[in-house]
Simulated scan of single mutants.
Amino acid sequence: MEAEMNAIVDEGVTIRDVIIDHPVYGSLTGQLMVKSRRDVRAFLERVEANQAAPLSHLTGGLHIHTLEADSEEAIDAAVSELERLGVLVSELD
């Protein structure tokens, strides 16, 4: 999770939220507003301090982020980095 989030924010992209498609409850969204490595560390510290499972734990890790940036190039760079890390799923069967 840390590598994924850092890959996004390192390109100047804000992670607005995380969304999962739960089989019972439907679409669930958690607000994040993570825009720096400092925010990533703070988020991970809150997860650990509360012994909280990430929302994506409910779907075997599958999740969606809403991303925001000043340019399409920043989004493209973040997506490329996620692909390089092997964490990007572009299509589900």
Results as ranks from 00 to 15, higher is better:
residue 3 A to H: 14
residue 3 A to G: 05
residue 4 E to G: 15
residue 5 M to D: 03
residue 5 M to K: 08
residue 6 N to C: 08
residue 6 N to A: 05
residue 6 N to F: 07
residue 6 N to I: 04
residue 6 N to Y: 11
residue 6 N to P: 02
residue 6 N to K: 13
residue 7 A to L: 06
residue 7 A to Q: 11
residue 7 A to V: 12
residue 8 I to H: 03
residue 8 I to D: 04
residue 9 V to N: 10
residue 9 V to K: 05
residue 10 D to W: 03
residue 10 D to Q: 08
residue 10 D to F: 06
residue 10 D to M: 04
residue 11 E to R: 07
residue 12 G to P: 05
residue 12 G to C: 06
residue 12 G to E: 03
residue 13 V to Y: 01
residue 13 V to E: 10
residue 13 V to L: 11
residue 13 V to W: 01
residue 14 T to C: 13
residue 14 T to E: 14
residue 14 T to Y: 04
residue 14 T to R: 04
residue 15 I to K: 08
residue 16 R to C: 10
residue 16 R to W: 01
residue 17 D to T: 12
residue 18 V to S: 01
residue 18 V to I: 12
residue 19 I to R: 06
residue 19 I to G: 06
residue 20 I to K: 02
residue 20 I to C: 04
residue 21 D to G: 07
residue 22 H to L: 07
residue 22 H to I: 08
residue 22 H to M: 05
residue 23 P to C: 14
residue 23 P to M: 01
residue 23 P to F: 14
residue 24 V to S: 11
residue 24 V to W: 03
residue 25 Y to T: 03
residue 25 Y to R: 10
residue 25 Y to Q: 05
residue 26 G to F: 06
residue 26 G to W: 04
residue 27 S to N: 15
residue 28 L to Y: 06
residue 28 L to K: 08
residue 28 L to D: 02
residue 28 L to V: 11
residue 29 T to G: 03
residue 29 T to C: 00
residue 30 G to P: 05
residue 30 G to S: 12
residue 30 G to V: 11
residue 31 Q to W: 04
residue 31 Q to H: 04
residue 31 Q to Y: 07
residue 31 Q to V: 03
residue 32 L to Q: 13
residue 33 M to W: 01
residue 33 M to C: 09
residue 34 V to A: 10
residue 35 K to G: 14
residue 35 K to F: 00
residue 36 S to N: 05
residue 36 S to T: 15
residue 36 S to E: 08
residue 36 S to G: 11
residue 37 R to P: 02
residue 38 R to N: 06
residue 38 R to S: 15
residue 38 R to K: 14
residue 38 R to A: 15
residue 39 D to S: 15
residue 39 D to C: 12
